[in-house]
Structure formats: C-alpha cells, structure tokens
Computed example of a mutant assay.
Amino acid sequence: MNKTERLLAIVMELQRSKLLTADELAEVLGVSVRTIYRDMQGLSEAGVPIIGETGLGYSLLKGYFLPPISFSVEEAVSLLLGAEFIENRFDPTFREGARSSRRKIDAILSLPIRDETNRIQKSIRLLQKDEKDIMTKEKVNLGIIREAMLEGKKLRFTYHKRIAEADGNRVTVRTVSPFGLAHDEQNGWLLLASCDLREDIRHFRVSRMSDMTMTDDTFQIPDNFNLQSYRPKDTRSIRVCAIFNSEIKDKVEEANNYYMEASESKEDGYHVTFRVRQPEELLYWILGWGADVVVTEPESLKNRVREEIEKMKERY
C-alpha cells in the first residue's frame, strides 16, 4: 500500500468509525504509529478536517464525507457475491435491499471493471440446498426475528427438536429474548437467545421453528454480551468411540462430523472418537455407514444400533 492509498484508507476508517486512536489505525493498516502521525499531518495540510483529541484519538469533522471511490475487480466481486448470499438466504426486506445494492454497485463500475467482474461472477456459483420449504420457512421467520431484535421484543414459537429431550418431548413452546443470528454451513440460520424456559442462552435452528409471533414483552441485551466474541458452552460430556473401515477413511474425514473429536489410523481400522450430549445424536449418522463402522462404546449406543438393525430387518 503506497502513501496515497494509505491516506485514503485512513479517511475511510475514520468515516466508518467515530473515533480511532493512532495505535488502532496503525494496527489496521499495518504501519507504525509514527507513520500514522505523519499521515495525519499530511491530511490536515491537504484540507481534510481531522480532529485530534488528546488521549482519545482522531475523528472527522461532523458532516465531512469522502466522495465515492472506484472498486477493484476483487472488491466488486466480493461485494456482489455477498449481496447474492443475502438475497438468497435472508427475508424479503433484505432480499430487496441486496438486489438494489447489486444494481447500484454495478452502475458505478467502470466498463472494463464491470466486464471483468461479470466474467468472474459467471465462473462462481453459490450453491443452495434444494430444500425450498425449509428455506421459505427460514426467510419468513428471519423477518419476524429481525423485527423483534430491532424493537427489543420477545418471541414465542413452537420448536421441533430432532432428538427428544429427557422428558421424551421433541416439541416445546419457547418464549425467548433474541440476542442475535448466526449462520452455520451445516445448520443454516441459528438464533442465539435467552430462553425463559431454560433460563439460559440457547441456540435454535430457525428452520425448526413454527407458529412464530412477536410478543409485547420487552427485553434488553446484557451489557456483557457480545455476539462476535460469544462462544457457546460445550455441554458434550459423553464419549462415543467407533472403528471405521480403513478404505473409507477419506470419506469419513470429508463428512467432517461436528461431534468428531479425535481420529487415528490403526491396523484394525480408522478409530474415531466423538463427544456428544446424547448418544442418539450420532445414531442415524452411524447407521448411514452400514457395515463399514462398528461402535465400541458406550454400550447404550451399541444396543440402540442393534435395535435399529432389528427393526430394519423386520421391515425387509
């Protein structure tokens, strides 16, 4: 990054943030603090209204705005692909916003950049799961969730779990305070929320929610909660061990099961250790490998596998 690019980057960072210290700018731009001081002097001499507050940092004079700048091919493709993802996976309001953003970005690109960007876009495809009903349900729910988060209102919905809880119920009605949304490649959209029933933060797959409504009850996100740094509690306490046929080792690794904790190739096969909350969480995944896997522990899961095999034999 040359000096001109760095000066533009500083103005853009200040335009994006209300206040930044020299140390913060130096870290973002990968230069020394002394270089930032010199750049600030240069920007001030060039007429950019930089305000320096001793002990606090730098900011731009209120109302100052850097005119639009051109995008590189890589920047344009990144923005357009990001907009396409939102268009495909979010609720109707954001879908329209994403479409509008794509049109605006395309409109301000120079002809050579636009042609190159279109060429690259045609060579990249964002694959979506062919689960139209689930995706439609997700998008409807996402709109309600987003509205509830903006208004600080609680949500009530029916939640359908894949595996029954200790009381044998798979379906429960939950009232929650929505803290944020996260997207997972395997599970789709997840809602992080404080659950009134469990009195703790829980994760809910948006596609498993039904009958969702926004209540009149309000909530406030705790000051110590930060979605970007939040890490869920690991409640997986049960160890599951299995031996796979060595010939399918690459397929098992490629499956990249969420619960997989350790693996090792031995003479008798590919040994894999999982860590789960309930053994049943792995039952159908294990059965999917047929005779190429043997569960060695716990005994309870070995028995469940036997039971399922007997049921299958009866049906065939």
Rank of each mutant, 00 (worst) to 15 (best):
D130Q: 10
E131A: 11
E131G: 04
K132F: 08
M135V: 09
E138H: 01
E138R: 03
E138N: 06
V140P: 03
N141Y: 01
N141G: 05
N141C: 11
N141L: 03
N141E: 02
L142V: 08
G143R: 05
E147T: 00
M149T: 03
M149S: 00
K153Q: 13
K154N: 04
Y159L: 07
R162M: 10
R162Y: 02
R162G: 08
I163L: 02
I163V: 13
I163K: 04
I163G: 00
A164M: 10
A164N: 08
A164L: 09
E165T: 05
A166Y: 13
A166S: 14
D167I: 03
R170G: 15
R170T: 11
V171S: 01
T172F: 13
T172W: 09
V173C: 14
R174K: 14
R174F: 03
S177L: 01
G180T: 06
L181G: 09
L181T: 13
L181D: 08
L181M: 12
H183E: 07
D184L: 00
E185C: 11
Q186K: 11
Q186V: 14
Q186N: 09
Q186L: 07
G188V: 02
L191Y: 12
L192F: 14
A193E: 14
A193T: 06
S194K: 15
D196H: 10
L197H: 10
L197G: 11
R198I: 09
E199A: 14
R202S: 03
H203M: 15
H203R: 13
R205G: 15
V206E: 10
S207E: 04
S207C: 09
R208Y: 07
M209W: 08
S210M: 13
S210G: 12
D211P: 01
D211A: 12
M212F: 01
M214V: 13
T215Q: 09
D217K: 07
D217F: 14
T218C: 10
Q220N: 11
I221Y: 05
D223M: 06
N224A: 10
N224M: 11
F225K: 00
L227R: 08
Q228C: 03
Q228I: 05
Y230D: 06
R231K: 12
K233T: 10
K233I: 12
T235N: 13
R236Y: 00
R236L: 03
S237I: 08
I238H: 07
C241N: 12
C241I: 01
N245M: 02
N245T: 03
E247K: 14
